[in-house]
Computed example of a mutant assay.
Amino acid sequence: MTEHWASRWRVPVIWGLLLLAGCLLMGQLEALFRWVEPDSRDVIFSRVDFLVLLGRHLLVVSVAAVLATLIGVGGAIAVTRPGGRDFLPLVAQVASLGQTFPPVAVLALAVPVLGFGTLPIVVALLLYGLLPIVRNTLAGIEGIDPSVREAARGMGMTSGQILRQVELPLAAPVILAGIRTSVTINIATAALGATVGSSNLGDPIISGIVNGNTAYIVQGAVLIALLALTVDSVFARLAPARRA
């Protein structure tokens, strides 16, 4: 059992350790980044500790993911019920609308209303992450064989019981795939929060662009990539478990 667990989670653990090593040991790579940016006085981003930036990045993405999952899954379930089917096209269009606007445009519109800080980027990530969740939840629930529902009704199950015990378990792998896509995309998109005062792993990238420091940009980009790979590999390991 232990060997199976270790084999199953080896890849996420490796990516996670590389991410932590990058945050903790970035300063030890000064010689390498000095080669990348030989003309800059400072080649290691030191304004904020990388572990702090990682924590802030995870917090923003997690809050947006939880809200997007609750709204996306809840909305999709509502419009697959008999009383909500008339609103199915509207929900699908609203979810699609979120991804037609670039996150930068959403931030530009949100800042005058919400101010600078974390809230505008959470709103942008929420809107940007809704579509995959809504789309996959609809596909997962609508793709269930009607005979399965009829069999559940024949057993005397109520509509709520059918949803909880039949539809959601069968649709779970598809729903999880939508959440996985949403979160992975938003890990990269969250870096834009640094432009509106939401400190995260986008800080080195934005600072590098402003100051013409390629080393800063590389540091932020590498850490965000490692975070995305870590989270994506975790979702990849969860998917088979949900099907079992």
Rank of each mutant, 00 (worst) to 15 (best):
H4Y: 11
W5E: 03
W9S: 05
R10Y: 04
R10E: 01
V11E: 02
V13K: 04
W15Q: 02
L18M: 09
C23L: 03
L25G: 04
L25F: 11
M26K: 06
M26D: 04
G27W: 11
Q28R: 06
A31V: 04
A31M: 07
F33S: 03
W35A: 06
W35Y: 09
V36K: 07
E37C: 05
E37L: 10
R41C: 09
D42Y: 10
V43E: 08
V43L: 15
F45L: 07
F50Y: 10
V52E: 08
V60P: 09
V61D: 13
S62I: 07
A65G: 08
V66I: 15
L67Y: 04
T69N: 11
T69V: 07
I71H: 00
G74T: 00
A76I: 01
A76S: 15
A78M: 03
T80S: 14
P82A: 09
D86G: 14
D86A: 10
D86L: 15
P89N: 11
A92V: 13
Q93E: 12
Q93M: 15
V94D: 08
S96N: 15
T100G: 15
T100C: 15
F101S: 11
P103W: 12
V104P: 00
V106A: 00
V106P: 08
L107C: 13
A110T: 10
V111A: 06
V111Y: 08
P112C: 09
V113A: 12
V113E: 12
L114F: 15
G115M: 03
F116G: 03
T118H: 01
P120D: 04
V123Y: 10
A124L: 06
A124P: 01
L125K: 08
Y128V: 10
G129F: 12
P132D: 01
I133H: 03
R135K: 09
T137V: 12
G140Q: 01
P146K: 09
V148N: 05
V148K: 04
R149Q: 09
M155I: 01
S159Q: 12
S159T: 02
I162T: 12
I162H: 13
L163Q: 02
Q165V: 02
V166F: 14
E167C: 10
L168D: 08
P169N: 12
V174N: 13
A177K: 09
V183S: 03
V183Y: 00
T184G: 10
I185E: 02
I187N: 04
T189D: 00
A190L: 05
A190Y: 00
L192V: 02
T195R: 12
T195L: 03
V196Y: 01
V196F: 03
S198H: 09
S199W: 03
N200S: 15
S207C: 02
I209M: 06
I209K: 11
N211H: 03
G212M: 07
A215I: 11
Y216P: 14
I217A: 08
I217S: 07
Q219A: 08
A221S: 15
V222G: 14
L229C: 10
V231S: 00
D232E: 10
F235I: 11
A236L: 14
A239C: 00
A241K: 04
R243N: 12
R243E: 13
